[in-house]
Design a protein around this nucleic acid. Structure first.
Lengths: 156, 156
DNA sequence: TTTGTATTTGGGATTATATGGTATATCATG
DNA sequence: CATGATATACCATATAATCCCAAATACAAA
């Protein structure tokens, strides 16, 4: 089962290529496409990434919406048309389009951040900063308590 | 499996020819026809496009409607009679009819916009504007939630 | 540490794609 | 039928993407 964890920072070479962590690649190879689907995040200054099969499911669920609904049109445009198919080369690298790079503020290095069923691609410095802020925020809200409670819930 | 994603902007040469993105062409080649079906959008200033097999299904489902119903006449007129078969030349280009071009406000460049099971052909500037608006609207509505809920429903 | 293996990175060679042009065929119309 | 307009087939080229091989680095086991 697909599970993206941990962080990996890889270099973007002067052809614009960057290795997708080997650990991630296994989960990304599907019957129809060997690579990733990437699009601009709606919440953060980062690139959201997922596997082809998951994007197919999203496409299907949008398809199921009523043909004339505004939601369907908006979602198709914002997600399907704004996403990129990025196939692996023979060494497991992808070519990040300029559009995505500048959106996420990425230049020479890219940090792959596991989020369980999906992952993100950040500029290392921006991510470090975000992580720092998030930790602070968790501390201040004492979220560790929430996590403990959540774990109790899971055991039920 | 057919999945039209991303955007590709190609030039229309002075013969009116434009390359259909190679990525799309693979999904468009069918047993009976190698090319696309195109018609004027009902909602936007754009050309709607799909593969031959999908258009056949639409035609079939219209055929199933009662012969004398108003719906059938309307749909037949609006979609079937107003749609074009645009075959590929040997390099994968199509010739967009003037009718469609002027309807969509396209002149020198055409942007192919993936929508999952179908795609659209826009004027680059008009599409950029529309995408920008849509993205804003989704951010404010948090529509990503809709997708998640839909997926949950599917699992039931 | 040392050795062996897997992964990332670099760069030249090759291929695919988009685009432009010329030649041929088809069509509509006077 | 002749003519011009339009469409189609074929070939040529620039650019961008991809392959392939090699080197460097990171990682793991002994």
């Amino acid at each position: 089962m697909r599970l993206f964890l941990s962080q990996y920072t890889n270099k973007i070479d002067n052809k614009g290529r960057v290795s997708v962590p080997a650990d991630y690649r296994i989960s990304l190879k599907t019957q129809f496409f060997n690579g990733i689907i990437a699009f601009r995040s709606f919440k953060f200054k980062t690139i959201e990434a997922l596997d082809y099969e998951r994007m197919q499911k999203i496409a299907d669920s949008i398809d199921d919406l009523d043909f004339f609904s505004q939601n369907k049109n908006d979602l198709s445009t914002a997600i399907l048309s704004d996403s990129y198919k990025l196939p692996f080369d023979s060494e497991g690298r992808i070519n990040l389009p300029q559009d995505l790079l500048s959106f996420a503020g990425i230049s020479r290095y890219a940090t792959f951040v596991g989020r369980g069923s999906t992952f993100q691609i950040w500029d290392p410095a921006i991510f470090k900063n975000y992580l720092h802020k998030t930790r602070k925020s968790i501390k201040s809200k004492n979220l560790s308590l929430i996590i403990k409670n959540k774990q109790k819930d899971d055991k039920k």
